[in-house]
């Protein structure tokens, strides 16, 4: 800055009040004021123009301005997870159709339908199958993978080597069939029992008819797939179920936020309207330089 003199000192004073002087300029100004005490009075008067701090004024509707910090993230993640879920659900259904068991409790479809398979391929009921062609039955339990199917057969207490071999062969046949089967579980009730193509059907007496599909049988899979049209009845893996639950939760949160925003906006508008009426009643309306007040 230039040297302070009688002509430019006012600019210095004003810049000082505006807090725009650097340290060196402030020092120069102080020296000038010490030499010219009358200018100090002028500084004091100019300082009156500095607006006093007004801490009492606060914005009353601050809560309307805040945004929930996870709200947008929720929306974004929902959009992402929606597509992701669709992909996973499709994969899951495909997986379900490929490896999941299809079985059915009795829902009005007669056993005859299930048993309606080519005679040469049909497997006799287990009890019959395990029963030797002749001789007294024995009581026996056949173990399968993960399932213990009690099978009662009558035989003589007296051991018969030939018959035992026969039973063993039957067990092996059953095991072979079992290995060729998928796991057994309950299918949704409205999925009709399909007739596996050129594959064995097993009917266990005393239990609901169980339809079994052969492993890696594309035609059967396609047939089954064409019947599955209610995805909500398909069991989900825990991870996928969790994801779906989270998505439902996100939707609920989003809806709640929108409802809440509408409520808050309405409250604000009502408040504003009430405030305006009160303000006008109290202070009148100012038009130009004229204020019109209303008698209460």
């Amino acid at each position: 800055m230039m040297k302070i003199d009688q002509h430019n000192y006012e600019e210095y004073l004003l810049s000082y009040i505006d807090d725009e002087l650097d340290e060196a300029d402030v020092t120069v100004l102080i020296q000038f004021l010490q030499q010219h005490p009358d200018k100090q009075k002028e500084l004091e008067l100019l300082q009156l123009s500095k607006l006093p701090v007004e801490k009492g004024i606060i914005f009353p509707n601050k809560q309307l301005l805040y945004h929930k910090e996870n709200f947008t993230r929720g929306k974004i993640s929902f959009m992402h997870s929606y597509k992701w879920i669709a992909a996973v659900a499709a994969a899951c259904i495909a997986l379900f159709l490929i490896i999941h068991p299809f079985s059915r409790k009795d829902s009005g479809i007669p056993n005859a339908v299930v048993a309606n398979t080519p005679p040469q391929k049909a497997i006799q009921p287990l009890q019959e199958a395990l029963q030797p062609d002749s001789g007294p039955p024995i009581k026996r339990e056949i173990k399968q993978k993960g399932n213990a199917i009690p099978v009662i057969a009558k035989t003589n207490i007296k051991e018969d080597k030939k018959k035992e071999n026969y039973i063993e062969r039957k067990e092996k046949d059953l095991a072979a069939i079992h290995n060729n089967l998928m796991a057994i579980s309950q299918a949704p009730p409205d999925i009709p029992v399909l007739q596996p193509l050129n594959t064995p059907t097993v009917v266990i007496q005393g239990k609901a008819p169980v339809m079994v599909a052969p492993a890696e049988h594309p035609e059967a899979e396609r047939a089954i797939a064409s019947k599955v049209n209610k995805p909500h009845q398909i069991a989900l893996s825990p991870t996928l179920a969790n994801t779906v639950a989270n998505t439902v939760q996100s939707l609920a949160v989003a809806k709640e936020d929108i409802d809440s925003a509408i409520t808050r906006k309405m409250t604000y508008l009502n408040h504003k309207k009430a405030g305006l009426i009160e303000h006008v009643a109290k202070n009148g309306i100012r038009i130009g330089k004229v204020t019109i007040a209303f008698n209460e």
């Binding site: 810049s15 009156l48 500095k50």
Partner: peptide, 17 residues
């Protein structure tokens, strides 16, 4: 900004005095 502000302060000072 500087000029407008300085004029404003001078005007305020005159009025307050």
């Amino acid at each position: 900004v500087k000029v407008y502000l300085h004029r404003a302060r001078l005007k305020m000072k005159e009025y307050l005095v």
